[in-house]
Each structure stands twice: as C-alpha cells, then as structure tokens.
C-alpha cells in the first residue's frame, strides 16, 4: 500500500467527516432538544453555500483571512434566518402528532429551495479563488490542499467549542436538561421560548457552515441539499437519533467509506449511503447507538 494513498484516505476521511458532522451534529442537536426532525436541513445547507458564494463574489483579490471571516458571516446569516423560523413555524406543530412536524419541515425545504432558485437561478456557481490561493502542503511525500486542512481544523475546533459549550457552561447544562425532558425543563424555570430558537439557530449555523465549506469542493447547485439531507439523516438514523456520539461515529464511518469510495468506486458513491442505511435499519431498527425517545 502506497503511503501516499493512505495519507490521502486519512485526510479525505477527516474532510468528509468534517462536512458531514457539521450537518449531522446540528440535526442531532435540534432533534435532541426540540424533538423536531428537521427535513429542511439540506435546504439550509444549500442556502449556506449560496449565501457564502455570493459574499465571496463581492470580494475579489482579498487576503484569505477575509474569506475565512466571510464563511462565518454567511453561516451566521443563515443561522439568524433559522432563529426566525423556529418561533414562527415550528412552534405551532409541537402539539401536533409527529407526522405533522416531518411534513412541515419538508414543506419548508421546498419553499427555501424555490426561494433560492428565484434569487440565484438554476445555473451552477463556482468559486475556486480561495482554494487556489491557499496552495498545497506536502505531507510525507503527498500533496494535499491546504484548504482542506483548514476546513478540517475549523470544524474540529468548532466541535471542541461545542463540547465546552454543552458540557462546561451553564447554558450548556440548560440545553442538555431541556433535551431530556421538556416539561421538567420548563418547571425548572428554563426559558424554553428563548432557548429553542437559539438551539435551532446553532444547529442551522453549523449546517450552513458545512454548505459554505463545500464550495471549493463541488459546484454549487440546487441539488446539493437533497443529497446531503439524505446522507445526514442516514447517519443520524444509523447512529441513533438525538445521540451526539452516534452522529460523530456515523460521520466517521460514512466519511471513511466515502474516502475509500472516491479512490476505488467513484461510480456508486451516493447509492452506497442508501444501501448502508437500508442495511443498518434492517438489522437495528433504532440505529446503532440510540433509542428514539417517545415524547409523552
């Protein structure tokens, strides 16, 4: 085995992991705390990519750091949109049976996608400048683009920050309490009305970031969202809904499979995910790590 290939697979795994985890962790977070399966996640991912790429197009020939900042700004913008969505739409369906919330988020994704279509049209967008600007590094004899390394580092940094937020701060404690039992949380005085939009916005922020990060990696079209939603759901389902550990584990597995696939079977790529999900759900109806907690 060529060391170069091993290194590529290693870093590619981390790269795919980074993109996938930014989406799935948001999904798990939203489900764990709000109890909502956000079928519109892919649409927000797409929105993140489009907003980022538009921001980029306004700034040409600027130092890379500016682009880096723009990434975050784009993600924050989409996060804020998410924060608005929760109280207006989602809040009304908490009382309705589960099917309705799936349907609502599903419709939301349709609306968002067509809004994107309206403003940005159907032609694909590309932006390679940032990518090219950063150049490549040589690791043990293999050339690997710096952009990917930075993307990986950013996501891992965000994950660490998220860990600190959830497990070492007071607000993290509130979030975790709310995720276990909504009624208990309310009776403990946690202001669910302000907490929920924040958590939703956080999840959307991370997801949009995933979209923005994918820019140099693929052409930005309307379709990227649906692929991503399906994969994100597959991972979350495989890892077990609401389980952050499951999201991480799942993203690693899928990231690895995809990294291998890129080298050895580029053709079948996407369907592999579906087949994987199909197989896993057949054997473990509640995912690998999780139990779907019934809402009483």
């Amino acid at each position: 085995m060529n060391v170069g290939i091993l290194i590529s697979i290693f870093f590619n795994t981390l790269l795919f992991f980074s993109i996938l985890i930014s989406i799935t962790i948001g999904l798990s977070l939203i489900f764990g705390v709000l109890g909502i399966l956000n079928l519109a996640h892919g649409a927000f991912y797409t929105l993140g990519a489009y907003v980022a790429i538009s921001l980029f197009s306004y700034f040409t020939n600027v130092p890379p750091i500016i682009y880096y900042i723009l990434f975050f700004i784009a993600s924050i913008i989409v996060g804020i949109i998410g924060m608005w969505v929760e109280p207006t739409l989602l809040r009304r369906v908490y009382k309705l049976p589960d099917e309705y919330q799936l349907l609502l988020t599903f419709s939301l994704s349709l609306v968002i996608l067509d809004i994107i279509r309206y403003f940005w049209g159907v032609m694909p967008y590309y932006h390679y400048e940032f990518f090219a600007m950063l150049g490549n590094s040589e690791i043990a004899g293999t050339i690997y683009p710096n952009y990917y390394l930075i993307a990986i580092a950013t996501v891992i940094l965000l994950l660490i920050l998220l860990y600190f937020l959830l497990f070492k701060t007071k607000i993290g404690l509130l979030i975790r309490a709310a995720s276990m039992d909504k009624e208990m949380a309310i009776s403990l005085g946690i202001n669910v009305k302000t907490l929920y939009p924040l958590v939703f916005a956080l999840g959307i922020f991370l997801c949009a970031m995933g979209g923005a990060l994918a820019i140099p990696y693929s052409a930005i079209t309307l379709g990227i969202g649906s692929e991503v939603t399906a994969i994100a759901f597959a991972i979350t389902a495989m890892g077990g809904l609401g389980s952050l550990k499951g999201a991480i584990l799942g993203s690693l597995i899928v990231g690895f499979v995809r990294a291998l696939g890129v080298f050895y079977f580029p053709e079948i790529e996407l369907v592999v995910i579906y087949i994987l999900m199909f197989i896993i759900l057949s054997i473990k109806p509640y995912g690998l790590c999780g139990r779907y907690e019934r809402r009483v």
Partner: peptide, 28 residues
C-alpha cells in the same frame, strides 16, 4: 418484513432509502 419493525422517522428514512435505491437502479 423489515419495515414493520420500524417506527416513524426510521420508517420514513428506510422507505426513502428504498425509493432512492429503486430510482438509482432505473437510472443506472
């Protein structure tokens, strides 16, 4: 036989993946 083990979300996803596999088959 497999699908009847699943509930709500898992069921929806399972069916989605199946539908997509069929779609991919007809396409490829």
């Amino acid at each position: 036989y497999v699908a009847s083990k699943l509930i709500i979300v898992y069921f929806a996803l399972f069916m989605l993946s199946f539908g997509q596999i069929i779609f991919a088959l007809t396409y490829k």
